[in-house]
Amino acid sequence: MKTDKVTQQKIIRDVLISLVLYALPVILMLLSFKITGQRPWKKITATTVNKNV
């Protein structure tokens, strides 16, 4: 028994849309950093360097 062709096509279309949805929060986060000038990853690095010192 096989999945019908229409369902197969819908699955492929929706998987492609899903890839965009998965990336959306990450893209929006990076965009917000660009707009606000925040660099939170640098804070962590700086803390680590200070600890080592």
Partner: peptide, 16 residues
């Protein structure tokens, strides 16, 4: 990725 702010982490996890 521990530096990711809470609410962005929340959104990434909820969607993922």
């Amino acid at each position: 990725f521990a530096w990711v702010p809470f609410w962005w982490g929340f959104a990434i996890i909820a969607v993922g």
